[in-house]
């Protein structure tokens, strides 16, 4: 019976739907191609997608999404979005840099924006969004050094690429700055900002790796870990959840993980925010208003493109003295009186 009804409705709708499917973009449409890891990664892709959804809610535009399952998907996915008549195409991730450039050069009428990639020279129909995450991670590193009881903190990354290592650089510099100011010797495991070498899972999707890497760092004495690998870090959080936040704390990246992963919010000391949602929304608005132009935009502490999340459940661990020092550092970085890499 149900099937009959289905057929009845279907055949009537057939012609209309066929047209809609093929010729789908009448309203303003923002389209996103995510990197591997999926749009529900509670981190990188999800934050960027939130920007699109915010635009949908605010301006009533249409949106389309394609999730990459592997790196071989980038090129055909971007081409599909071009063919779908998107008004702006958002490529999420450094690894898509080459594919986005090829697509943009082959389709000069389409407008692109890419997260974490700045072209040199710039491409007229791509707006690169890069983020000074080292500034925000610097603050997180400083807090961690102040909160750590073992005097050892750790980090690991997904792949050794600038958008990942930017976090790790800032984190290590922040700890170093703490040591200099306080005359302490807090150690950072997992990243050497001078040699550019450290711990990497070499993927952005295995939560098992996230757990194993955090376990290794914990075994080496680290009691605070910052995983910079999108959803991989959720594995680290599950370890911290098992051990208890007095033994291991996690620092989130990209979004505020107490919001995206509320079930384990007690393990997050803070999160290094990379507000892709804000920049994606503003790019969509600029395309809509006609003020879009290619080039590069940089999110900093000053313009609010990066920042750190509140300490939430663990705010009792952060003394008011430490918190005010962090606030002073933030102002110092903005004014330029603090040079991070020293």
């Amino acid at each position: 019976m149900y099937f009959k009804k289905f057929l009845k409705i279907s055949s009537g709708a057939f012609a209309g739907v066929l047209l809609m499917t093929i010729n789908s973009a009448n309203a303003f449409t923002a389209c996103q191609v995510t990197d591997v890891g999926g749009v529900d990664d509670k981190s990188f892709n999800q934050t960027a997608w939130k920007g699109v959804q915010d635009a949908v809610a605010k301006h009533g535009i249409d949106s389309k999404l394609l999730e990459s399952k592997s790196e071989t998907d980038y090129e055909p996915h971007l081409n599909s979005m071009v063919n779908a008549g998107c008004d702006v195409i958002i490529a999420v991730g450094f690894l898509m840099g080459e594919a986005t450039k090829n697509a943009a050069e082959a389709n000069k009428d389409s407008k692109f924006t890419i997260i974490d990639f700045a072209y040199d020279p710039t491409v007229p129909n791509i707006l690169g969004q890069v983020f000074a995450t080292d500034q925000a991670a610097f603050l997180a590193g400083y807090v961690s050094a102040g909160v750590s009881k073992t005097g050892i903190v750790g980090t690991f990354g997904g792949i050794n690429i600038p958008p990942v290592t930017g976090f790790m650089d800032g984190f290590a510099w922040g700890v170093k700055h703490y040591n200099k100011v306080k005359g302490k010797n807090v150690q950072v495991l997992g990243w050497d900002p001078d040699a550019k070498e450290g711990l990497f899972t070499n993927n952005f999707d295995s939560t098992d790796d996230g757990k194993a890497f955090a376990q290794n760092l914990y075994d080496e004495g680290a009691d605070i870990v910052m995983p910079v690998a999108g959803p991989v870090g959720l594995g680290s959080a599950s370890l911290a959840d098992e051990l208890g936040s007095d033994k291991l704390k996690i620092i989130g990246v990209d979004g505020d993980w107490t919001q995206t992963d509320p079930a384990r919010k007690s393990v997050y000391l803070t999160s290094v925010l990379k507000k892709m949602d804000v920049t994606v929304l503003s790019v969509i608005e600029s395309v809509k208003s006609g003020s879009y132009s290619g080039g590069v935009t940089v999110g900093t502490l000053e313009n609010g493109g990066v920042g750190i999340a509140p300490y939430h459940d663990l705010s009792s661990e952060v003394s008011s003295e430490l918190a005010s020092e962090v606030e002073a550092l933030r102002k110092g970085i903005i004014s330029g009186s603090i040079v991070m890499n020293k």
Binding site: S24, K64, L66, P76
Partner: peptide, 9 residues
């Protein structure tokens, strides 16, 4: 499948 995600979400 790619078209399916683009057109039908």
């Amino acid at each position: 499948g790619r078209q399916m995600q683009v057109s039908a979400d």
